[in-house]
Write a protein that binds this DNA or RNA. Structure first.
Lengths: 212, 212
DNA sequence: GAGCATACCTACTCGTGCGTAGGGTTACGC
DNA sequence: GCGTAACCCTACGCACGAGTAGGTATGCTC
């Protein structure tokens, strides 16, 4: 019987990626709780027990999503910002990579990130990632300061870095909600806010991306 | 029978506030979905049907919480920033009021706000509030620009305002997570980032709150 | 082509928690 | 002191969705 097997059998690795794709999509659309495992399974073109067999419980599945997307993002950023460049150059490249990532994986990022903030079990996971980002930014600021022979309290540095990261995330949300917006341009705007500051901007000074 | 009525009968208005207090607390601790109506009712010292009778469904209850806390916040800010002051003064007062509010209602704010971002049904509600904030900030920037005879595209203004609001929310989160931190000091730090910008800060210029 | 692991399914169980039915009791006007 | 309206309760119904039991087919190895 069954001369034509309705649909193909695929190796585990492939199916897992399909499931993760579906999960990201559904979690992003519905939110963690409102998303049902049935819908995810259906969207992945597979039945529910397979999801449990491969990726475990709903929570574990969500964590797996967070991990994949988080790793992708970190790699995108890390790959762009070489540590031996001057601080402004590093900041610029990091921002550009970041917004590029968000633009490319709108679903993936915006929603997973937005989701994870609220739900207790995952807030920690997220906080770790953000903490790494804050540390990187704080390190850059500190480096730039020392280069000028200055120094400020570590806590102030951290808070400033926190604010910058927050502003960036906020613009990422904006970008995710405006599909027509250009990631590159958004990065430039963020660079203006971050590096020159509102006051400078008000005086008409404008930072421009280097033409390379 | 029942010479001593176990606990008092109270007028509706009072009970509603008690319920809202309890709801804010529980929603903030557990998150929207994990919070149970039973727990909220118990925490309010009342039985579940009363909650339904007065505040309606779980969603309606949450919206009511959002509304109360949101209104409180907006009033705190609006009351502080008189429209005839110079922009930097207004910004400073607004920030101070905002962080003061967050410091006072840590539970209320941080969690409701964090919660509402993720859950679809409420994201809109929240977006409206944030949009009002963004508009106010953008208006301030625009005003300041015109005073200097300059002008920039409306969309740039909006994005900058968005970034500033995002940075502020981010610091509010930070504040909510650091119970020992001083709201006033946090506001000052935010003012530095917002008004002078990172570059200015790097050159050692520091904005100080006026001593009044 | 026998044996075995892997991919895959249909069809259930069962807890959890929202929302309600139906009834009791206290205050207050008249 | 009697009706009426507001306050308040102890149960329950019921849907929804996470996770599982138990079985079928397909390819791979020797």
């Amino acid at each position: 019987m069954s001369s034509v097997p309705a649909f193909k059998r695929l190796p585990r690795a492939v199916r897992e990626q399909q499931m993760l794709d579906a999960a990201v999509k559904v979690f992003s659309r519905r939110g963690f709780h409102a998303a049902s495992m049935d819908e995810i399974a259906e969207d992945a073109g597979i039945s529910k027990p397979m999801v449990y067999a491969y990726l475990g419980t709903k929570e574990e599945l969500f964590v797996a999503c967070l991990h994949r997307e988080g790793t992708r993002m970190m790699q995108a950023i890390a790959g762009a910002a070489a540590p031996d460049l001057p601080a402004d150059e590093r900041l610029w490249r990091g921002l550009r990579a970041f917004f590029g990532f968000v633009g490319a994986y709108r679903d993936g990022w915006a929603v997973l990130y937005r989701q994870a903030r609220g739900e207790q079990p995952f807030a920690g996971e997220l906080a770790t990632m953000r903490a790494r980002l804050v540390e990187v930014v704080a390190g850059m600021l500190d480096h730039a300061l020392r280069a000028e022979g200055r120094e400020i309290a570590a806590i102030d540095l951290e808070v400033v870095a926190y604010a910058l990261v927050g502003a960036t995330e906020s613009l990422a949300d904006w970008l995710a909600d405006h599909p027509d917006a250009d990631p590159e341009k958004t990065a430039t705007r963020m660079m203006n806010v971050a590096w020159l500051g509102a006051a400078q901007l008000l005086h008409g000074v404008t930072w421009r991306p280097p033409v390379d």
